[in-house]
């Protein structure tokens, strides 16, 4: 590990002034520092900042950036009103890791593309302009939607997929003190020709909280398909909420993990479903829409039929007789 300076400010102002790389749970950053994929010169430990706790806010919830993944998954309000979020969190990593991992850090965890982890392999995300060894390489875990010729990496987070389905907003305090609330599609960037830029955050911008809107109607689930039944990243995952009225789908929210460089949601898929009676043909049409532009790179071609089947299974579950 490269050496670094370490500071532990007590206030957000001091954290901005310190002008270094924030560290929260450290479960991703320390791992990458050991591999020298990340080499920050200064670590700003934000654990003493007042960014903890889950509180009600209007009809929704405000989740502090330092709330651990375990605490969030176990919170009774989340388990009752936003169960797909509890399910997504509990499907990620292990209890030891979830105890340290924070809500803010989870959004910003880096890809698990094997070439990003290997400093002697070319990776445009790690070193812009270097090339992408994943092209023509081992692509089993990589994305099939939203990629570019410069990068095939998938976003690894389960939590962020759930947050996308729930229309969560990320509260950010910019380095200059201004604050913003960003929807996930305005927060995450697609790789294009700058895969090293993953979000709109600039150095020194701090995530302070996540805001969940009022609980929405319908049944919810999070289905994660992976190489082993526990402690593995998603090949494909679906966070879904479906509301039914008079035998027809009245509302739908569907977000996907493992498929793209950011949690993936496509409003056109939901529009196909809303107002219709559930049927195998309808679900097939929705899957066709979702995957119309999907492109495999060889080793991940299987994700396209796998996503199709996983989506159809989830829709059958949520529109069928209550379990």
């Amino acid at each position: 590990m490269k050496s670094f300076d370490y500071v532990r400010p007590e206030t957000a102002d001091a954290a901005h002034e310190a002008a270094g790389r924030f560290i929260a749970g450290g479960t991703n950053l320390i791992d990458l520092m050991k591999l020298q994929v990340e080499t920050p010169e200064k670590l700003v430990d934000i654990n003493r900042l007042d960014l903890r706790g889950i509180s009600t806010e209007g009809d929704g919830l405000k989740i502090g950036a330092l709330v651990s993944n375990s605490e969030l998954a176990a919170d009774l309000r989340i388990r009752t009103d936003y169960p797909l979020l509890s399910r997504a969190l509990l499907s990620g990593a292990t209890q030891q890791l979830r105890n340290k991992a924070t809500t803010g850090g989870n959004f910003l965890q880096r890809t698990r593309c094997p070439y990003f982890y290997e400093p002697h392999q070319a990776c445009n995300k790690r070193t812009p302009g270097e090339g992408c060894s994943a092209q023509g390489g081992v692509t089993r875990m990589l994305a099939v939607l939203g990629t570019s010729e410069h990068c095939l990496a998938a976003h690894p987070s389960d939590m962020a997929v759930a947050m996308r389905a729930l229309d969560a907003k990320i509260a950010v305090t910019r380095a200059d003190g201004t604050t913003e609330r960003l929807a996930l599609d305005d927060f995450y960037l697609l790789p294009g020709d700058r895969p090293d830029r993953e979000t709109v955050l600039e150095p020194g911008d701090l995530i302070t909280a996540v805001h969940l809107p009022a609980p929405a109607a319908g049944r919810q689930t999070y289905r994660k398909v992976r190489d082993r039944s526990s402690y593995a990243f998603a090949l494909v995952s679906v966070a879904a909420r479906i509301a039914m009225e008079d035998g027809k789908i009245s509302d739908a929210a569907l977000a996907f993990g493992g498929l793209a460089p950011r949690p993936w949601r496509d409003g056109a898929v939901e529009e196909i479903l809303i107002g219709e009676a559930p049927s195998e043909a309808l679900f097939g049409k929705a899957a066709d829409r979702l995957l119309a532009e999907a492109k495999g790179a060889g080793g991940n071609d299987f994700k396209i039929p796998l996503t199709r089947r996983t989506l159809i299974a989830v829709l059958n579950d949520l529109t069928g007789e209550s379990a």
Partner: peptide, 29 residues
């Protein structure tokens, strides 16, 4: 493994289990 993947380094910090290989000691003052 020294990378949070095996659990051999599990200890309790303030009563909760964590992988001590992915903790910087200075962060636990």
């Amino acid at each position: 493994c020294d990378h949070g993947q095996c659990g051999a380094c599990t200890v309790l910090v303030n009563g909760e289990r964590v992988n001590s290989c992915l903790c910087l000691a200075v962060m636990h003052d």
